[in-house]
């Protein structure tokens, strides 16, 4: 990828992340930490690309490990975040 273009993406993404958190009430810090934990679970996509191009057995083994870990990050992150936020919702109706 074009290095300079990537630098712009880095910068804009960093500002975006900062802005999203800066205005969050304390009560949402834990769900948000958990939610951002889920979002970096997208690492599973990178792991799939590596496993998909792995050639040796060692590469396949590491790739398998990477995909499994990434999938666990995404699935686990989603479930715990959703469970926490579901409780907030229920209470609002109460």
């Amino acid at each position: 990828m074009d290095g300079l273009l990537a630098l712009y993406i880095f910068m804009l993404a960093a500002f975006t992340g900062y802005e999203i958190i800066a205005k969050v009430p304390v009560i949402l810090h834990t769900p948000l930490m958990s939610g951002s934990n889920f979002v970096h679970g997208v690492v599973v996509v990178g792991a799939m690309l590596m496993l998909g191009t792995a050639e040796t057995v060692v590469q396949q083994a590491i790739g398998f490990f990477a995909v499994a870990l990434g999938a666990a990050n995404a699935a686990g992150g989603y479930v715990v975040t959703e469970r926490m936020l579901a409780m907030f919702k229920k209470k609002e109706g109460a």
Binding site: A13, T16, G17, I21, A22, S36, N37, V45
Partner: peptide, 16 residues
């Protein structure tokens, strides 16, 4: 997609 998701979380996590 990985860059954006990763850096957004990196910045948000640092502030948090």
């Amino acid at each position: 997609a990985l860059i954006i998701a990763g850096i957004v979380v990196g910045a948000a996590g640092t502030l948090l």
